[in-house]
Amino acid sequence: MADTVATLPGALTRAAPPPEPPAAGPHGRHSPLQHRADELARAGRPGRSGVELREVPFLTQFNLRRRQRSGHNAAATLGFTPPLALPRTPGTVRRSGDRMAVWLGPDEWLIVTPPGTAAETGNTLRAVAEASAGPDGEADTVYTAYTEVSAHSTTLRISGARARDVLRKVCPIDLHPRAFGGDACAQTLLARGARVLLVADREPDGFLLFVRASFADYVTDWLLDSMAEYAAGDSPFKNEER
């Protein structure tokens, strides 16, 4: 499209130049929420009754599909150091070191490893696929497919004593610790339209939210709005830290 805008018939004015792109972050890339880092840092409130929101950009993510020809689930242990077992129970996560395997479906997982580890993770998944392939056509033949999906979504980390309250306003999942424990995950709709993957973080009261890159701003807007009252401080609590 031409960079001119017609205002009146016959009158052409120069369109405003596009804004300068922000400086690239680590790994030479731009993360979907890089331009809102300062806003996120200002919006939260640390401390015992606070809540904080941050982007965790550039996590390496692989989608892994694995099933037996017979239709049975084919879970496996991935040969990382230390090894990482795939969770068989729906809605659960297995962790090992700084890697995790998230249940997405009865034959589908998301493998999450630190930024910049795509080559290593890809090699590990290839080894699993080759080790278990077996002769084609046999009932116990395991079919494996893995795809790098790192750029599909970015990750938000919401933490603090009020994190559950913030998420409850925009997410229908029961987040009580009894129902959504430290190894829980859920794919659901956030704020009525955004498909997200919600994963309990290692640290209590922390959650990781995997959001599609194109929905990241929308979800961030909702979360910031939902956080506002807790960030300002709330009367039933003594705010020693303020």
Binding site: P90, G91, G105, P106, P172, L189, R192
Partner: peptide
Amino acid sequence: PWCGDRDEVEF
């Protein structure tokens, strides 16, 4: 059957 009870809008 896998995720348990969810809102109709997810389906």
